[in-house]
């Protein structure tokens, strides 16, 4: 009887402790959750034949971590992701297991748009192409990044050519042509995102792509409105509200990231949501 009471007491104590502990851990800073990944060359040395599973777990860890970041974004709460650690981890995973498509797919999904690391991602994709030489999606991503983010149309054409060769599909050469034509246009972004949304299996990644597409579509609507306004009234609008007042658009679209759209002093469509300042709504030209 005494023993049973002692046991019940301990169990009660356990319950009393485990709940606040769980809450405490849930509230851990995001960077603690991601942890620190040592250099891949060192990891390879000590992985002892388990590189593949190690790489996969590292990639999953980053995807998981980024998922929590996206949750915050969806809730209109800006958090700065641990870019350095995330990219280092993904890079290490790609070195440990250069064949793992998850790694490249995630790098393309996460690092290009909001984080603006297209150059780094292309370096990673180049690394992957050496191994996944049958896979057209890597040069396809790289081609898109070169054209859309980096405005490096020569490289973009080369990548698309490669994608066409690997896949035997002329669609990519057509895409290359379209990249030249629509250079810097948000329509190109929308087209790419639509492709990625169709391919996406992970619901979170899909959600991310949809958010981006929605922003781009909203920007497209507004840009068309601004152009119509200029054409009709012979001057640029100073406020986006003017488009609604004049009946050019029904209402101002919402920024999925929680900001407000506005016109900057150069007459370009911008948003107040903090991190979409980095979002490539309109790629910087003239670099």
């Amino acid at each position: 009887m005494k023993k049973l009471l002692a046991l019940l007491f301990m169990v009660g104590l356990y319950v009393a402790l485990v709940v606040p502990l769980g809450d405490h851990l849930r509230e851990r800073p995001l960077n603690v959750k991601l942890g620190y990944t040592p250099d891949a060359r060192l990891l390879k040395l000590v992985a002892g034949g388990q590189q593949t599973i190690l790489a996969e777990s590292m990639t999953l860890k980053v995807i998981f971590y980024f998922g929590t970041v996206i949750e915050h974004w969806i809730q209109q709460e800006f958090v700065q992701p641990e870019y350095f650690n995330m990219f280092k981890t993904i890079e290490a995973a790609a070195i440990l297991d250069p064949y793992n498509m998850d790694t490249y797919y995630f790098a393309q999904a996460a690092f290009t748009w909001e984080l603006g690391r297209a150059k780094d991602v292309n370096r990673l994709l180049e690394h992957g192409m050496k191994y996944r030489d049958w896979d057209e999606s890597l040069p396809f991503y790289a081609g898109f990044n070169s054209a859309y983010f980096l405005q490096d149309y020569d490289s973009a054409a080369k990548y698309m050519q490669k994608a066409a060769e690997v896949s035997g599909n002329s669609m990519y050469t057509n895409l290359a042509a379209r990249f030249f034509y629509e250079a810097g246009d948000s329509r190109m972004g929308v087209a790419f995102l639509e492709t990625m949304i169709r391919q996406a299996k992970n619901p979170q990644v899909k959600r991310l792509y949809e958010m981006r597409r929605d922003v781009l579509l909203a920007v497209q609507t507004l840009e068309t409105g601004v152009a119509d306004f200029a054409e009709r009234f012979g001057k640029q609008p100073t406020e986006l509200e003017q488009l609604v007042v004049r009946g050019l658009i029904a209402e101002l679209p919402l920024d999925p990231y929680g900001g407000q759209f506005f016109l900057d002093d150069k007459g370009r469509v911008r948003t107040t949501s903090k991190f979409t300042e980095k979002l490539a709504v309109e790629p910087d030209k003239g670099e």
Binding site: G22, L25, R26, K33, K61, F64, G67, T68, I70, E71, I74, P203, Q204
Partner: peptide, 11 residues
């Protein structure tokens, strides 16, 4: 911890 955070998360 990670798994429970995942399954109880909105994703």
């Amino acid at each position: 911890q990670e798994v429970v955070e995942y399954v109880t998360g909105p994703s």
